[in-house]
Design a protein around this nucleic acid. Structure first.
Lengths: 301, 301
DNA sequence: AGATGCGATAGGCTTGGCCTATGATGAAAG
DNA sequence: CTTTCATCATAGGCCAAGCCTATCGCATCT
């Protein structure tokens, strides 16, 4: 059975006239007659009682009409829904963001994204890198903002902007006297985030430390880490976008001599079909953050 | 768009694998791939995100799946309903019956009809001939039991059985002394039914009376007419099947010398598609009434 | 009796869906 | 690191199904 046949059925039932129904369907009357007859043979029931003057739907036909209407309306709903979904820059867009980035980046990019992509319903999802990659691979995210390269051939990524790290020091720390701090000098009393945060490894690597400082406290989140630094528990590196929050916490920030930093990237599945949306989002973020690296490195956030 | 395509869509969404989905649909994998691609082009939306390893429904696809399921289920409902309606001897059958026949015939034929045609849902409709013909032409009845010929080329009929008339006399009427009554002898004090009853004209014609007896009472129904005869207001002819009711009313019945009577026919639209049902109903009634004419004429009802 | 309107039928054409065979790609295995 | 396997995409050919025009059959109306 064909949807077309159901449309024909509805047309004949409505017009009670083959010629007019055929015109309404955009086909010739003989074609309509043949199709209706085939439908009747398929159903095994006479659908219309024909006279040279009248065409009346059978009782059986009336029983079927409701279902036929339902089927036709459902397919029209499909087409209508598809029309609404056609624009790749519209609809839900689930964007994963790592925790050391989300609270500092999102406030900057929400407004530009809403302005540039008003139909895009952005759903941020904050989690650590590996969780984001898992959700991305499981099709539970459409894209993710990360600070690491992505590995597999199933995922691809594109750099959006460079984010320099800054030395975060307690106000009374000896290094606070320097205008610029060398990464290596932070190793002694360095604090790092808990396991799973990419910033943890990046901090350690930037400071030339292969393994985490033994026995030290490990902050579960960046705000906690900032509080710990402010309280004099040690030093750390913070990503440039968190500079404002760090200053608010009463921390002294200093640029780094080797200009350590990280690159924020947007990652997505290689076969993700809404690539235009990914690129549009990436572009808006990159534009908003353009020139940020230089400014931050110069201490003028 | 085609229902087949929607089935394919559902299959791929369910199996998340083109090969298996194709097997489930009974088609080859390339065919399925092509059809899904066409569907995607029609919708203007990617429906599946394909990898050499995985096939995942797009968010857009998930939005459409519900409607697709609804459409497919509706068409399956159509086929199921059609299957139930296929038997012409099953389902509603609206049978019109004239008032001078219904109360006397129906008790006789209900049981045989239920036995012979258990799936037929008989809906009797009692009304006068012209009203029945109107409803028949308006497709509001499937058939009608009449005592007259039908005229137009749009209706056809078939005789079921002959129903002899009987002379109905008050117990103390002079003619009650005769074993057989001549139709002509009833003219003097003959009572007839109200206008619209075919029995009215048939009674008058049988008795050779061209116009209704002036100034006489006219009964609105046959039971009333019987009561009037029993009360001595006059005589009349009654159809043979009403003999029992007439005797119960205390009326004397006598066979007629000229054997006046009427033929009960079943009538239906010439193009009515459930002719088997009409014929089956007619046959059951004719069988039940077989030999009735002779018995009634001999006075052995 | 001729004209008109309507649905059914016949014959030919084109499209669309289906198949098999093959290509392309990525992942797993030797 | 190459081979093999699994998977989806593409190509080309075939056939049925749907469509059209022309015509018929039937009934009604003039």
């Amino acid at each position: 059975m064909n949807l077309r046949d159901l449309r024909y059925l509805l047309a004949v039932a409505e017009h009670e006239h083959f010629g007019r129904a055929a015109r309404a369907c955009g086909i010739s009357q003989p074609t309509l007659s043949v199709q209706i007859r085939k439908l009747e043979e398929l159903m095994g029931v006479a659908l219309f009682e024909r006279t040279s003057k009248t065409v009346a739907p059978t009782f059986a036909c009336q029983q079927l009409l409701g279902h036929a209407r339902a089927a036709v309306m459902a397919t029209e709903a499909i087409l209508a829904t598809a029309r609404n979904l056609r624009d790749p820059l519209a609809g839900r867009f689930r964007l994963g963001i790592i925790p050391t980035l989300a609270p500092y980046l999102l406030p900057l990019v929400f407004a530009p994204l809403r302005e540039a992509l008003p139909a895009l319903e952005l759903e941020p999802w904050e989690d650590q890198t590996s969780a984001l990659l898992g959700r991305l691979r499981a099709h539970e995210l459409d894209a993710a903002l990360l600070a690491t390269e992505v590995d597999g051939p199933d995922l691809v990524s594109q750099p959006l902007f460079a984010e320099p790290f800054l030395a975060a020091l307690p106000p009374d720390h000896p290094l606070a006297a320097c205008a610029v701090v060398a990464e290596r000098d932070l190793t002694r009393d360095m604090l790092v985030l808990a396991d799973g945060h990419c910033l943890r490894e990046q901090t350690m690597e930037a400071c030339g430390q292969s393994e985490a400082p033994g026995g030290t406290l490990r902050a579960a989140s960046l705000p906690t880490l900032l509080n710990m630094v402010a309280a004099g528990y040690g030093t750390t590196l913070i990503p440039g976008l968190a500079a404002g929050a760090a200053l608010d916490a009463g921390i002294v920030l200093r640029p780094l001599s080797a200009r350590a930093g990280r690159t924020v990237r947007i990652a997505w599945r290689a076969h993700f079909p809404r690539r235009p949306a990914v690129e549009a989002v990436g572009e808006v973020i990159a534009n908003r953050l353009r020139g940020f690296a230089e400014g931050a490195a110069a201490g003028t956030v």
